[in-house]
Design a protein around this nucleic acid. Structure first.
Lengths: 106, 106
DNA sequence: ACATCATTTCGATAATTAGCTAAATGTCTC
DNA sequence: GAGACATTTAGCTAATTATCGAAATGATGT
């Protein structure tokens, strides 16, 4: 739980997770979305991995990252519950084109 | 929002918020719950204040801290929504004293 | 085999953070 | 006003973190 919150404390990492919600992406694709060097992104990925928030799959010379939604849910859920909030994990909706143009700000 | 997540990234601060959920407490009362020096706790309070997660009221020579539940809710809510989760802020039932022995919360 | 590409690891640095003790501020009681 | 109390501010150190460029790893294409 602590690792999850540590991971979420950085805006870049939160944005990475949001991007991954829409679809799995390679390290390079993700890196292209941010104005930092590759090794920096790689370090961010490592933090997310240690928090168990993403999983990676090596395909050829690329690495595909996937969001582990259930882990994020679990953490948020148990935290919210400690504060008497109810958080119902609605089954992760597919990227259904309607949410697509909505430049969400973090 | 970033300040909120930064604030939540430290276990001590999360615990402070949990304690404050039950009832407002003075700086000293809170400090007594943790094995760190007073100035350290004071710094933690400052972070929580900057994130707007608590408010303070000076009463005599003590300072009473109160959780700003709505701010915490807002942050968690908007974050959860960005991931397609539904988070319903069940009206925070005060677990204070009289409801305490009744198992009032789910 | 060799060059290229995708990604990570290494090694360094600058910025941030949590922690401490000591000192300052403000309030209370006598 | 003097002393005690509650809390914060100041000044410091140690640990952690975000960042970089360069080098290493491993797969692909020629």
């Amino acid at each position: 739980m602590n690792l999850v919150f540590k991971a979420l404390s950085d805006p870049t990492r939160r944005k990475v997770l949001e991007l991954l919600r829409k679809r799995p992406m390679t390290a390079g694709e993700l890196a292209d979305e941010f104005p930092v060097a590759r090794p920096t992104m790689s370090a961010h990925f490592a933090v997310l991995r240690e928090a168990n928030l993403v999983e990676q799959e090596k395909v050829g010379r690329e690495i595909i990252y996937r969001l582990k939604m259930s882990v994020l849910e679990e953490a948020l859920l148990s935290f919210a519950q400690a504060f008497g909030m109810e958080l119902s994990p609605r089954r992760a909706k597919r990227t259904s084109a309607k949410t697509k143009a909505k430049g969400a700000t973090a």
